[in-house]
Structure formats: structure tokens, C-alpha cells
Design a binder for these strands. Sequence first.
DNA 1: CATAACTGTAACAATATATATTACAATTCA
DNA 2: TGAATTGTAATATATATTGTTACAGTTATG
Lengths: 136, 136
Amino acid sequence: MNNSRFSISVHILTLLASAKGEVLTSDYLAGSININPVLVRKELINLRKHNLINSREGKNGGAYLSKAAKDIRLSDVYEAVRQSPLLGQAKNTPNPKCPIGRQMDNHLTNLYDDAERAMVEQLRATTLSQFLNQFD
Amino acid sequence: MNNSRFSISVHILTLLASAKGEVLTSDYLAGSININPVLVRKELINLRKHNLINSREGKNGGAYLSKAAKDIRLSDVYEAVRQSPLLGQAKNTPNPKCPIGRQMDNHLTNLYDDAERAMVEQLRATTLSQFLNQFD
DNA sequence: CATAACTGTAACAATATATATTACAATTCA
DNA sequence: TGAATTGTAATATATATTGTTACAGTTATG
């Protein structure tokens, strides 16, 4: 990952889980997270695309979880916000004339896949419900 | 991590391991990686600080591994370039008035520590020597 | 001992990415 | 119909990454 989208999405989902089915507005969510409401709405759209939340337009609209918090694993959240490999591949293209350089990307990609998989497995161990239960 | 420094450092170390003790110049390394030599020199300084390489100034100068490739684990490289948690904490400070928001950073930090630890353990499984052996 | 080949390092420029803001159409409730 | 809200685009601002230039300091070697 590259930014703080995972943090923001976990924060949103934790708030929704604590709301027990009530809808929360993007303004309310943004107020707790302390970021711009438009960013929250963008994240909500992404989370909805990944079937983690639903939202309602119009007056009394807002967002709510689309399934029970115990059925959402933090790995699901990670996968929803993931856009590029965890360990940043360099932008440059290694020199194809160099026998090491020209194979580097392949081997690094394999290595990164394994490393990222290990991390996702760890995230899979925690459900949203468990995460929420840690809060007082 | 945030950038491609891990990739660059692994690339550098792989080239040095393949050179079997011969020194390589930052210009040569930069040519294989296809980045600016100054960036390579900066990475070399960091790798040296972490006791992975040594370097010699002046004519016929350059860099070389400071220990056997089999004694360098890819987790060592990760730790050398690591500067911030793997999963980016958001820049914003959650609203301290929100009972969820005010505890969020703590719980996220614990979560991230566990996730990152799992990934580092996976990297620890591969030595630089093993990584190099994958190349034709 | 002069010269060429290097590293070390600072200062700065360019580019890319992330985040924030503004604005407003579309939707829904009451 | 009016108020509250999402959805979304366009644009601005901030921050981070990467690249460049320049040059002082170091070392090997003829």
C-alpha cells in the first residue's frame, strides 16, 4: 500500500460496526476520522464495491455494514483498498543488458508476493468484530 | 515502506554478491538498476550504516559486501531501509471526542505491528545467497 | 606529486502521489 | 417543495519521491 486508505477504511468500518445497523453520514464519519467528507464518500464507494457496506442516498441517508462484523476479516479490508504491491517495485526498468538486472523484477515480484501473502494471512486472523471488541 | 528503496537495496546487494568480493562502482550499479548514481551512493551509505556493505573512496574505489551472502537475510535488508510502518498510519489525528476515534491509533498500531512482523518473518526465510541462486 | 577515478554530500529541481476543497447534480424523506 | 444527503468531477494544495548538478575530499598510480 501507499497511503493511509487502509487506516481510513478500518476506521469507517469500526464506526459502522459500533453503530449496530444505524446509518452514519459521511460527515459524521469524517468528523471522527478528522478528514474531508469527500474522501470518506470515496472510500465508502470502494467499500461498497467490495460488498462490505451499503449506502443510501437522500435525506436520512448514510452508510451501514452489508454483513455482520464477525463475517468481515481485516484481510478483506486490505484487499479492498490494495492497489499496488506492498513492497514498492521501483519505477525504473533495470538494464536489460545486465544479466542480473534483466531478471530482477521477476524475482522481486515472487519475493513480494510471498511476503505480502504472509501479512494478509496475519490480517485474516482478526475479524472486524474482534477488532471492535478491543475498544472500551 | 513507502518507496522503492527495498527493491534498490536488494538489487545492489545481489550485484555485489554476484561480484564475489570485487568492488563495484556506484556508476556500474546505477547502470544495472537504471537510476541515478547519487541515489545508489545514498543507499550504499545506508547499507553500510547497517553493516551490510563496505565501501572504499578514491580511485579503484567502490562497494563490496561486508559479510558472506549466506549470512544476509532479506529481513536484514528490509530492516535497513524501513523508515515507517508498513501500513501507513493516516496523517490526521482522529477526533479525541469520539470514543472510537480516540482509541483508533493505538489499536491500529498493534494491528500493524503484528502484520508487519509476519511479513518480516517471511523475508527472514530467504538469504541473499539463496536469492542470488535463483538467477540463471 | 600530479592526475584521474572515485565516494560523500549538499542543494536544488522535477515529478509523482496523496489529500483537501469547492461545487453541484441527483436522490430521498417528510 | 425544501432540507439533507450521497455521488462525482474538477481543481488546488501539500507532501513525498526521484533526479540532477556541483564540487570537496580521498586514493591509486604512473
